[in-house]
Design a binder for these strands. Structure first.
Length: 271
DNA sequence: CCTGAAACCTGTCTGC
DNA sequence: TGCAGACAGGTTTCAG
């Protein structure tokens, strides 16, 4: 479940009452060693045990857990999930990869079916997030700057928006939805986007992310966490269904190896 | 610089 | 029923 709104939802749940803030880590279980990107299992345990959770945040799609001396980063990739365990007896724990045990007996579980997710424990946060592009919801990013960013390169707009070095947080769902909202074809070349279109695109990105967060993210298939945004998709996974705006059937194509959904009428390719 | 393919993994669903 | 193939919310690396 991991694009910006889903990670934000998880971060907020860990930060809220019943979350992990102010708890002290008493133990750590690593069930899949590859989930740990840095450091190794023994160093990880040695360093993290005894530390207290200061606060929880998000940067791009990274979950940030701040400790007194270090930062714990978790990236959920395709199938990761993080939650505080309440009832261990009534849960499928087959894909638990890493668990932190707290002093009050509660546990924070990193569960990840496909094993793509990664965890880092570092002193310098920039070592993990230093290469990320700006936060799309940061007010300091304005339409003029966003247009400049689009002009600096000349790439297909969809893969560009999903490039975390360009902008941090968008994934396949929210990119498709934002491009539809902005009326831009996924294959549009970034340098051909005019200032007004850039502003419309930035506003669309912010609108879909904001709505996604307000709806606690999207819940699809067997990965369900209570989000609601999947019921409000305009194009994503709506192949063959009528466009809400013009009635034309939504088209699916592959762009940058990813399934891409769009309305051929509302999102014309000008070139 | 840009694009596409492959790899990393497990699970679900569809069609023959 | 069985099985092959497509597909899945992501990122990195490599070839052309």
């Amino acid at each position: 479940m991991p694009e910006l709104p889903e990670v934000e939802t998880i971060a907020r749940s860990l930060d809220a009452a019943g979350g992990i803030v102010a708890k002290t880590i008493r133990g750590a279980e690593v069930h899949w060693h590859k989930s740990l990107a840095f450091p190794g299992v023994e160093d990880f345990k040695k360093q993290i045990i005894g530390q207290q959770i200061v606060s929880v945040g998000r940067r791009g799609k990274f979950l940030q857990i701040f400790l007194p001396m270090q930062t714990l980063f978790i990236h959920l990739r395709m199938s990761g999930d993080v939650f505080v365990e309440t009832d261990p007896t009534e849960r499928d724990s087959r894909h638990d990869r890493l668990i932190l045990v707290f002093d009050d007996g509660s546990r924070m579980v990193f569960n990840d079916t496909r094993k793509f997710g990664r965890v880092w424990l570092v002193k310098d946060p920039l070592r993990v997030t230093g290469g990320l592009g700006p936060e799309p919801l940061d007010e300091r990013l304005d339409a003029v700057e966003f247009h400049k960013m689009l002009q600096r390169v000349n790439r297909q707009i969809k893969p560009l928006l999903m490039d975390q070095k360009f902008l941090a947080g968008l994934g396949n769902i929210y990119t498709d939805e934002a491009l539809f909202k902005a009326g831009i074809h996924p294959l549009t070349t970034s340098r051909s986007i005019e200032p007004l279109q850039a502003e419309k695109l930035l506003n669309a990105i912010r609108a879909v992310l904001t709505e996604g967060i307000a709806r606690n993210g999207s819940s699809i298939d067997w990965v369900y966490r209570g989000g609601d945004f999947q019921n409000h998709f305009k194009v994503y996974q709506r192949t063959g269904q009528p466009c809400a705006c013009c009635g034309t059937l939504i088209t699916r194509m592959i762009v940058g190896q990813r399934g891409t959904h769009f309305c051929p009428i509302c999102q014309p390719l000008s070139s």
